[in-house]
C-alpha cells in the first residue's frame, strides 16, 4: 500500500482515473436519473414524487460515504503519518458536504407532498443535519489548522482526530430508522434482506448511485491533485526565495 502513497506514483494513476471517473460517472448519473425520471413508473402511493429518490438516495449514501472516507483516511494518517492520507481526507470534505446538503434539500422537497411537512425533527432527519454541520466544522477546522501550521508544514492532526471522532454519527444515521420511531421510512435496500423497491425503480436507482459515486471519486481526485500541486508550488517558491 505504501507503494501507492508515493505522490509521484499516485499522480501517474490519478491523472487518467480522474478523466475516466468524471466522464463515466457524470454520464451514468445523467442517464440513470433520466431513465428513472422520464421512463420509470410512478409509485402506487407517492405518485410522481418518487422520482426525487434517484438523486436523494445516492446523495444520502455519498454524504455518508464521504465521511467514511474522511474517517478511514484520517485513521491511516494518524497511524502511518502519511501526508497523502491527510490530503485524501480533506479532499472528501467538500463533495461530501455537497451531497449531504443535496440529500437534505431534496428530502425536504419530497417530504412536503408526501408527509405533508418540509421538515420534522425526527431521528433520521436530525442526524443527517448533524452530518452536514460536521462537514462544515471539519472544513473550517482543516483550513484553520493549515493556516496555523503554514510554514511549519504541519500534518493537520487535529483535523484528522476530528474526522475520526465525527464518524460516530454514521451508525446513528444508519440505525436511526431501525431503533427509533421516525417519520422517515425504514430501510428499503439491505444486503441481507434484499430490496423492497420494485426492479423498475431499483435499477435506475443503483445505476445513478454508481454514477454519483464515480463522480464523487473524480472530484476527490481533482481536489487531491490540486492540493498536491499547491504544496509543490509552495516548496519551489520557498526554494527560489532562499537561493
Amino acid at each position: 500500500m505504501h507503494a501507492y502513497a508515493n505522490p509521484a506514483r499516485f499522480l501517474k494513476i490519478a491523472r487518467p482515473l480522474t478523466h475516466w471517473f468524471g466522464w463515466i460517472g457524470g454520464l451514468l448519473l445523467l442517464l440513470c436519473v433520466g431513465w428513472g425520471v422520464f421512463a420509470g413508473p410512478a409509485d402506487y402511493l407517492q405518485g410522481e414524487t418518487v422520482r426525487i429518490m434517484y438523486i436523494h438516495v445516492p446523495a444520502a449514501w455519498l454524504g455518508m460515504a464521504g465521511w467514511s472516507g474522511i474517517a478511514i483516511a484520517s485513521a491511516m494518517q494518524l497511524i502511518w503519518r502519511h501526508p497523502l492520507a491527510g490530503i485524501a481526507a480533506r479532499a472528501c470534505a467538500l463533495p461530501g458536504a455537497v451531497f449531504a446538503a443535496l440529500c437534505l434539500a431534496t428530502g425536504s422537497i419530497w417530504g412536503r407532498p408526501t408527509w405533508g411537512t418540509w421538515w420534522e425533527w425526527d431521528g433520521r432527519l436530525t442526524s443527517m443535519l448533524v452530518l452536514f454541520f460536521l462537514y462544515l466544522a471539519y472544513m473550517a477546522l482543516a483550513s484553520a489548522e493549515q493556516e496555523a501550521d503554514g510554514e511549519a508544514g504541519g500534518e493537520g492532526r487535529m483535523t484528522a482526530i476530528f474526522g475520526l471522532v465525527g464518524a460516530i454519527n454514521l451508525p446513528i444515521i444508519h440505525y436511526s430508522v431501525l431503533w427509533w420511531r421516525t417519520l422517515h421510512q425504514g430501510q428499503s435496500i439491505s444486503l441481507m434482506k434484499g430490496s423492497s423497491i420494485d426492479g423498475s425503480m431499483l435499477w435506475p436507482l443503483l445505476g445513478a448511485a454508481v454514477g454519483a459515486s464515480l463522480l464523487f471519486g473524480a472530484v476527490v481526485l481533482m481536489r487531491m491533485r490540486a492540493e498536491l500541486a499547491r504544496t509543490k508550488l509552495e516548496m519551489r517558491m520557498r526554494r527560489l526565495a532562499a537561493s
Binding site: 425520471v37 414524487t49 438523486i55 431534496t106 422537497i109 407532498p113 463522480l215 481536489r223 491533485r225 490540486a226
Partner: peptide
C-alpha cells in the same frame, strides 16, 4: 413541480462542485 424543483436544485449544485474542483486543479 416538486420533482422539477429537486432536480433544478441538484443539477446546478453538482455541476458547480465538479467544475470548481476541476478549475482549481
Amino acid at each position: 413541480h416538486f420533482v422539477i424543483a429537486a432536480y433544478a436544485l441538484s443539477i446546478p449544485v453538482l455541476a458547480w462542485v465538479v467544475i470548481a474542483s476541476f478549475v482549481a486543479m
